[in-house]
Computed example of a mutant assay.
Amino acid sequence: MQERIKEVAARIKELREILDISQESMASDLRISQDTYRRYENGEEDIPASILYEISRKLGVEMSILLTGEAPRMHYFTVTRKGQGVSVERRKQYKYQNLAANFINKKAEPFIVTVEPKPESTPVHTNSHPGQEFNLILEGSLKLFIKDHEIVLEEGDSIYFDSSCDHAMVALNNKPARFLAIIM
């Protein structure tokens, strides 16, 4: 996994340098500290999927190029077989599988996300990114924290929200929760 983090970081650095964008500008646009950005780009720290998505937008490339080093090739459709999505383990508490990594010019990023249960009932870290997000619970139960709201979602429930608001989630009942997340 550490090697994969370094490969993604190297692709980001190379593209940023080709485009003549400074690390300071990237950090500012991503609303993170310059130190945090440098750790991401040096492969010293895992990059959250939401930040990776914003980096891809800033660099003008598909997120899959950063993840795999290959350009998407599909123009009309792409099929992702069960369990075969491109793995994006960008946050320790969540596991992501990108379901459309091979489609060109996506208007949204669809993921299957797995949240493992933890002893804490409240999240340690929140997340935010520009845009909107749709989540549909496929398995388990999830407590979603959005700003000062706590919402419990059960299998089959869904939520659509402004993802620029601080948000996080925890799996409930000591079982993993899986959901479809579409980031727009």
Rank of each mutant, 00 (worst) to 15 (best):
E17S: 10
R57M: 11
T36F: 10
I21V: 08
A27E: 08
N42S: 14
S33K: 12
R39D: 15
D46M: 07
A27S: 10
D29I: 12
I21T: 02
I21G: 01
R39L: 15
R16I: 06
D20S: 11
N42H: 09
I32N: 03
P48F: 04
E44Y: 04
G43Q: 08
L30V: 09
R57F: 08
L19T: 02
R16L: 04
P48I: 01
N42F: 07
E54G: 04
Y37C: 06
E17K: 12
I55Q: 01
I32P: 03
K13I: 06
Q34K: 15
I47T: 01
L19F: 06
M26P: 10
L15Y: 04
T36S: 12
D20N: 13
Q23G: 14
M26G: 12
S50C: 14
S22A: 13
Q34D: 13
D35H: 13
I32E: 09
G43E: 04
R38A: 15
D20F: 01
E14T: 09
L15I: 03
L30T: 06
D35A: 14
D46I: 11
S33F: 06
Q34N: 15
I32L: 05
I51E: 00
E54D: 07
K13L: 07
L15W: 03
Q34Y: 13
I18R: 15
R16N: 06
S56Y: 05
P48S: 11
I51Y: 01
S50F: 09
